[in-house]
Design a protein around this nucleic acid. Structure first.
Length: 592
RNA sequence: UGCCUGAUGGUGUAAUGGUAGCACAGGCGACUUUGACUCGCCUAGUCAUGGUUCGAAUCCAUGUCGGGCAGCCA
């Protein structure tokens, strides 16, 4: 498949790239290191694509690296299924573009204790490029080091074991508009804290009985500085770390340190973490770490119209069987988009085109559709297919006559190639392309009218054959063979050109037509998003396809002329029975 | 009555004290053996009020409106 989009895309520019460029100019870091840190508790979606392209783009444009790291600190919500799908989706999205920046680590590797700037320091060190013996990074691989760091914090008097119940912890925290108050356990001795924390780790206490808390400021106007929890007790096995642990670190504690361990320089996340940045910095600076610290930068996440980007809501759609699974082609999941036939390059172009800012916006889905059409227009093979067939007889052709016509495979190609399509007495055209009583400016086929059958010749509609109910069963026309390519009257112009297939050589195949899943631009703002589902998001038809499509292959993209872009469905197709998914329709300015 | 953060055409995004530009969408037209593509033209914007300045989208003040923050989720 194609890799780089044909026209060279100008290097994107945004406030984060500007910050990094400044750091590069002043040589602040030896190498720019970013990371994409999903929690393996759901499938990646189009919103993640923006983050992936930003993080990998930063690495790519600065000869740096980007780590795929699973933020797997909450085993009760996570699953191996998700680490596998996420890994595959990331690799698909960056293939041919930034795969050389994707850093994996040797399988099973953990950070080792080394000496940095004369101080003991855990550091994962330079990572190997992707190979058979490598794997993504996992925050859970740092649990030992994180535990050691927690001990350090306790010894420095900056963390304590708290016996408050979850409910009381919440009460003591106060609210945004009034301060919290100190936990009665806040001033335990270092020795007692050390003892209790070690016993937490040893499994002596039940879930929720105690927690390890940072000692910051219960009156801070920033809620995240009111002694946030560092560790909680969870007697559950972990999908990656096994059953070694019954205490698990929380995001704010694990994330900054994971960044540090991996040598991340720029930790880019979305706007809801702005308030957490103070905590990110507090953990890192409290530990007196010897190496350069990572910094967090925030941008607005992507919210495309007419769809949903929330793992929780997407999960609901899957569980409620509104869609057929995480990779349903109607979903904005990366696996759904891929199955639908969206090229990764189009996705990259789209997320790049919307920019990176700190403004919460609703992105017009038309921008996405434009990127997809633009990309597909370059690469798609043109084919003839009829979705809603109606029979048309060329009365001046003999029943066994077969006229070979040259059809262009891709007019966008610099050196277009052709294939043969057969014109026969009996053909199918699109039912929409004929109107007995045409609306104004209708330049398709009508009684007495003329159109060109693409790649063939001009035909004239002579008469209609109807059934008892008055429905048209057959359109009878005369073909003017002198208007064929090479004929005396090729140059003759008619207003309309139709796609068609020969009834003698075409074959039937299932075609799945997808439309937007929701009827409103912002389903997430709805009280109940299940009530604004588009009932027509999937239409299945049996189409008539030109013979050459029998050799269609899954890596190719097709344009069924005048209809849209299609690709082969691989997941649910049975051998010998082709199914096509419509990726997207062609733009239609003839709005009825 | 807290803290953080933001506001530029319909949508998204540039302009970093010096001509408000680009893309998408929309409209009109040209071209067309895809009502696609391509091309041309057009519509339409600096949240408000003050201030600083020769000059403000940009700096300052105040206000308005929006988003986020009270998980032992990330």
């Amino acid at each position: 498949m194609s890799t780089e989009p044909l026209p060279s895309v100008p290097a994107p520019s945004d406030f984060i790239r500007d910050i990094v460029a400044g750091h590069v100019a002043e040589k602040r870091y030896a190498k720019i290191v970013t990371r994409f840190p999903p929690e393996p508790n759901g499938y990646l979606h189009i919103g993640h694509a923006k983050s992936i392209c930003l993080n990998f783009g930063l690495a790519r444009e600065n000869n740096g690296q980007c780590n795929l790291r699973f933020d797997d600190t909450n085993p009760v919500k996570e699953d191996l299924e998700y680490v596998e799908s996420i890994t595959a989706d990331v690799q698909w999205l960056i293939a041919g573009w930034a795969e050389h920046c994707l850093a994996f680590k040797p399988k099973g590797a953990h950070p080792a204790l080394i000496t940095s700037n004369g101080q003991p320091d855990y550091y994962l060190g330079p990572v190997a490029p992707t190979a058979l013996t490598t794997e993504p990074f996992f925050a859970s691989d740092y649990f030992d080091q994180l535990y050691e760091y927690a001990l350090t914090l306790i010894r420095k008097g900056q963390a304590y074991v708290c016996d408050l119940t979850p409910e009381d912890t919440e009460k003591y925290r106060g609210a945004p508009d009034h301060p919290g108050k100190d936990s009665p356990f806040r001033n335990r001795s270092v020795a007692e804290n050390l003892d209790l924390f070690q016993r937490m780790k040893a499994g002596e206490f039940p879930n929720g009985a105690r927690s390890l808390r940072s000692k910051i400021d219960m009156t801070s106007p920033n809620m995240w500085l009111r002694d946030p929890l560092l560790y909680r007790i969870r007697h559950v096995p972990h999908h990656h770390a096994g059953d070694k642990w019954c205490i698990y670190p929380l995001y704010d504690y694990a994330h900054c340190l994971s960044d540090y361990l991996e040598g991340v320089t720029h930790s880019v996340c979305t706007l809801e973490f702005v308030d957490h940045r103070a905590l990110y910095d507090w953990v890192l600076t409290s530990l007196d770490l010897p190496r350069t610290l990572p910094h967090q930068y925030e941008f607005a996440k992507l919210t495309p119209g007419y769809t949903l980007v929330s793992k929780r809501k997407l999960l609901t759609l899957v569980n409620e069987k509104v869609v057929a699974g995480w990779d349903d082609p109607r979903l904005p999941t990366l696996s759904g988009l891929r199955r639908r036939g969206i090229p990764a390059s189009a996705l990259r172009r789209f997320v790049t085109s919307v920019g990176v800012t700190k403004f919460d916006s609703l992105t017009d889905i038309a921008v996405f559709e434009h990127a997809v059409r633009d990309e597909l227009n370059q690469v798609a093979l043109r084919r003839l297919a009829v979705l809603q067939p109606i029979k048309l007889i060329l009365t001046n052709l003999a029943a066994d006559e077969m006229i070979e016509c040259d059809a262009t495979n891709n007019p966008q190609s610099e050196t277009p190639t052709t294939r043969r399509v057969a014109l026969t007495r009996e053909v199918f055209i699109e039912a929409d392309d004929f109107a007995e009583v045409p609306p104004p400016k209708f330049f398709r086929l009508k009684p007495g009218g003329e159109v060109r059958l693409k790649y063939a010749c001009i035909i004239k509609c002579d008469e209609l054959v109807k059934d008892a109910a008055g429905r048209i069963t057959e359109i009878r026309c005369t073909a003017d063979l002198t208007t064929r390519a090479g004929g005396a009257n090729v140059a003759r112009k008619v207003k309309g050109t139709l796609h068609w297939v020969s009834a003698a050589t075409c074959f039937d195949a299932e075609v799945r037509l997808y439309d937007r899943l929701f009827t409103v631009p912002e389903p997430a703002a709805e009280e109940d998003f299940l009530k604004v589902i588009n009932p027509h998001s999937l239409t299945v038809v049996t189409a008539k396809l030109e013979a050459s499509l029998a050799e269609a292959n899954a890596s190719e993209r097709y344009q069924f002329e005048r209809l849209g872009y299609f690709s082969l469905e691989t997941k649910t197709a049975e051998p010998g029975r082709l199914i096509f998914n419509r990726t997207i329709s062609l733009k239609d300015t003839w709005a009825k």
